[in-house]
Write a protein that binds this DNA or RNA. Structure first.
Length: 219
DNA sequence: GACCAGGCACATC
DNA sequence: GATGTGCATGGT
């Protein structure tokens, strides 16, 4: 990778942090809740996810044991506010089944797995793709994997750092080889990208007032 | 009423 | 292997 691109990614982080400050993403009370949230938030507004999580909490269903017992149909009816409730119910059940079959139903057991192995295992669960796997690894399990999403792609391609058709692994590598392997930075950086894209990167062709505006000129 | 939101798997060509 | 499509609610 060109050295300039590396520095560029580091500069973007500093700019975003300066502009928006820390984002405090995912301060959920349990790792398990973060994981379920990661599945529920697929292609969905976070506010809707919180509603679904509240229902699960109120019904005392937000535990591996409880979700193991519940039927997909019952689960679907609880998570309706998050949208795609039938698919997501299946996906959550798939994850729970994996958790019990491979890690005795225990998150802490799962955390003992070697990070690379764990990522492969998660990707084998039907319904968990690269982004959801990395969100789980980073935000729930404290494993340093950079999360790439639609916003990340949009911002980077808009500022000419990647081509619009760059794939997930390529973009992830870009970040992971440019930055220290640091949980806090990975966590914050992804959240900052989402924040920036939401506020400034919606309108085509250019995002007026975006803190990254001037950077692309220096590339 | 259209559009969007912190994706993914599957069908089809 | 690329491209298209279904899944669904709630806020703007």
């Amino acid at each position: 990778m060109p050295r300039s691109r590396k520095i560029f990614l580091q500069q973007i982080y500093q700019k975003l942090l300066k502009k928006f400050g820390p984002q405090f993403w995912w301060p959920a009370p349990t790792r398990f809740e973060v994981i379920i949230g990661a599945i529920l938030t697929q292609n969905t507004n976070w506010a809707n996810v919180e509603k679904a999580l509240t229902v699960l909490k109120d019904k005392r269903l937000l535990s591996p044991q409880a979700l193991y017992k519940i039927t997909p149909r019952q689960l679907a009816s609880c998570i309706k506010p998050a949208g795609y409730f039938n698919v997501k119910a299946k996906r959550i059940k798939n994850f729970i089944r994996f958790l019990f079959e491979v890690h005795e139903g225990k998150i802490e057991k799962m955390r003992q797995e070697k990070p690379e192995n764990l990522r492969s295992q998660l990707l084998c669960v039907n319904g968990i793709g690269a982004e959801t796997a990395d969100s789980i690894l980073l935000y729930a399990l404290d494993k340093p994997f950079f999360v790439v999403d639609a916003y990340t792609k949009r911002i980077l391609s808009r500022h000419g750092i990647i081509s619009p058709d760059a794939d997930y692994a390529t973009i992830q590598q870009l970040f992971m080889t440019s930055l220290r392997k640091n949980l806090k930075v990975f966590n914050e950086y992804h959240a900052l990208i989402v924040r920036c894209a939401k506020e400034y990167c919606k309108k085509k062709p250019l995002c007026e007032g975006c803190p990254l505006e001037d950077l692309s000129k220096t590339l």
